[in-house]
Nucleic acid binder design. Structure first.
Lengths: 189, 189
DNA sequence: AATAGAAGCGGACCGCGGTCCGTTTAGGCG
DNA sequence: CGCCTAAACGGACCGCGGTCCGCTTCTATT
């Protein structure tokens, strides 16, 4: 093992908090795509370069912002109460998972889109939790075949941009849920 | 009817051809993401503003470039020889369609990604042909339910960025095809 | 052929994401 | 307590996508 990857200095940590707090404030105030990196920097009282060193890219910063809510959600999936968390039968959990993910995507649509702009590595990491979980549940259900591919197919209709399109066509969330449940049952068989 | 939307002037048409030709040349020469709008403009012998007036955005220009091959492909789906074109039984057509789309996505990966960067309207228009066609075939197969949602789910595993991720994990196209065939059969039932 | 006015043109200009590098500072050590 | 080095800082700088507006060119009409 390589041990700790980086000890991180105290002022650096303080600055990271300041940046995150500033970014959160600005996003809530003006909406996510009226927030520039330079604004975040000056609001946080640091230089632009500092922001980029901590978070790599704009996407990275948004992803970090998103992480706080996303982590809580993941926790409730992994160890929360049924039917989302463990304890319920797998099919029930899977359906609950889809509904929950759908609602979450709608709620955080703007931030998710800002945090998921075509870059492969980061976006895959963010999305992979959902894929992994669905795959796991499919496994528990005894589904055979390419579970990864099946998981990707299952999650696609819940994708932020897809759902937004549906809503623009006056399709209700309930109808999406119903369609998704049907899809799940077909795939599970 | 509103009649002709815009008659288009002769020099404008000439310039559009010049821009398209220049863009094609540059993309082939340097690769799609080493081509800037300014370069295209100067190579075409026009001003930058002209390029943007014709094609709106960089994405728009790339989409126009892509259109030439994409249109040919669509034609072969609509009126080409079976099993891709009409004449074969619907399930066979659907499977052929998926395989063909997968190969096309791999072949034009770079250009497709450049032409599909998060903007809703344009990208949906481009993707909608595939969705519409799959939906149509599902209808012919007598599938019931939310065919739009099912179509989106079916197409997701063929998406450029998904396939690239799979290939990075050393998964062969044949395996993707096999997984997809399986998915189709589950959904069709 | 002359004219008028719409359509097109082009390049200066702007804002933002991202990089670079000379300067500052934290904090372990003698 | 002062030093020394690696880490962190910050803002000038760059390139590109996209806009704007005063000037040019086409073409319909008579």
């Amino acid at each position: 093992m390589a041990g700790e990857p980086a000890p991180e200095r105290a002022d650096a940590a303080r600055n990271r908090e300041a940046i995150l707090a500033a970014a959160l404030r600005l996003v809530q105030a003006r909406g996510v795509d009226c927030v520039t990196m330079e604004t975040v920097a000056s609001e946080a009282g640091v230089g632009k370069g500092t922001v980029f060193r901590r978070f790599e890219t704009r996407e990275g910063l948004m992803a970090a912002l998103l992480n706080e809510s996303e982590t809580a959600w993941q926790a409730s999936v992994i160890s929360g109460p049924p039917p989302l968390g463990p304890g319920a039968p797998p099919l029930e959990r899977l359906l609950a998972f889809g509904h929950s993910r759908l609602r979450t995507n709608v709620t955080h649509a703007a931030l998710i889109k800002a945090a998921t702009g075509s870059s492969s590595a980061r976006s895959r990491a963010a999305a992979s939790f959902a894929v992994m979980h669905v795959r796991h549940l499919l496994g528990e259900l005894g589904v055979s075949g390419d579970l990864l591919l099946l998981s990707i197919a299952l999650l696609a209709p819940l994708d932020v941009v897809v759902v937004e399109q549906q809503q623009a066509d006056d399709i209700s969330l309930e109808r999406i849920e119903a369609g998704w449940d049907d899809l799940v049952r077909r795939v599970v068989g």
